[in-house]
Design a protein around this nucleic acid. Structure first.
Lengths: 166, 166
DNA sequence: ATGAGTGCAAAGGCTTTGCATTAGG
DNA sequence: CCTAATGCAAAGCCTTTGCACTCAT
């Protein structure tokens, strides 16, 4: 289901992005290419502020506008993790199928891969279950929620200083 | 990990909500009770507009403010589904552990339960994987993405009218 | 009476849109 | 040349906040 698509090299990402934009009559402009570049090099979904600061030659409006177009073209997807601002990453078939490991305290997100066994269970294994609800299964989104080392540590320190208050 | 907690009856939900608010020195006011009621009767996470229309005796500000307090108390959680507005549902231990079936076209969300086999795999089975990344596993969030009957149907109709354009 | 909770309205912040300018085909 | 893409600024929309009023303790 993923396989060879998981190992897109940098150039093919741009090629595909270009193709998909063409498919909806859009150009692969320098600004859009820049956005794809930034997202391709990120190891986690980026919120708009991260994107604008990483590409500060691009004005906010262009970032938002092009992100929206890239999303429409199926090049990027909007992902929602901790509950604050929207974040973006490359579409699954460009970035490779993966999941997120989210720190419930600081909101940090790390990309992770799951064993094939789990992936198969979540794709093939669930199709009948969703069919019973009148749905056709297309994919899944799994976030593993936890606490990162750093946050675990500061939590421990807190417990030391404050006995039980707050 | 869930078990008996999964079958909260209506009264215990309010009892627990009351307890948790007390725990952070907040009252279980009528407005807050109303919000819990609405969320308890929902079969899917509600966006704020759904909540305000369901409880139109409550002004927006109270809805937001109380939702925020209920969240702080651990009575409700903010969930993010398709990528637009924030939605709310009762906390896992009040509503029971479950997952979401999301229509990628219309954004409709339905609550679903997964087989124990899958749940176990996602909880116990993944802890070592996340530990390798320096995380302590707390839980998981799984959305099954698909297309609902209704959207599948309108999609088929589209294909009839337009040959391949757009 | 005293403080929490409420409601209205205004402010805030992220996101979108209008419009004139620039650039690619 | 003509349309798409860009940049700036203004507008929009969801959400938060200030402040006075009401209710419960």
């Amino acid at each position: 289901m993923s396989g060879d698509l998981d190992r897109r090299n940098a150039s093919s990402v741009h090629d595909i992005a270009s193709e998909r934009l063409e498919a909806i009559d859009q150009r692969y402009s320098p600004g859009r290419r820049r956005l794809v570049d930034v997202l391709a090099n990120a190891s986690h979904p980026l919120v708009t502020t991260e994107i604008t600061s990483a590409t500060d030659e691009l004005p906010q409006s262009s970032v938002y506008r092009n992100l929206s177009i890239l999303e429409e073209a199926g090049v990027v997807v909007k992902v929602l993790t901790t509950g604050e601002r929207a974040a973006f990453e490359l579409a699954e078939d460009l970035k490779g199928h993966h999941h997120h490991l989210v720190c419930v305290d600081c909101g940090r997100v790390i990309d992770v891969d799951l064993p094939d066994q789990v992936e198969n269970l979540l794709s093939d294994g669930m199709s009948s279950l969703v069919a019973a609800r009148g749905f056709t299964l297309i994919g899944h989104r799994l976030d593993l929620m936890g606490r990162c080392d750093q946050c675990s540590r500061s939590r421990r320190e807190e417990s030391f200083s404050t006995s039980s208050v707050k």
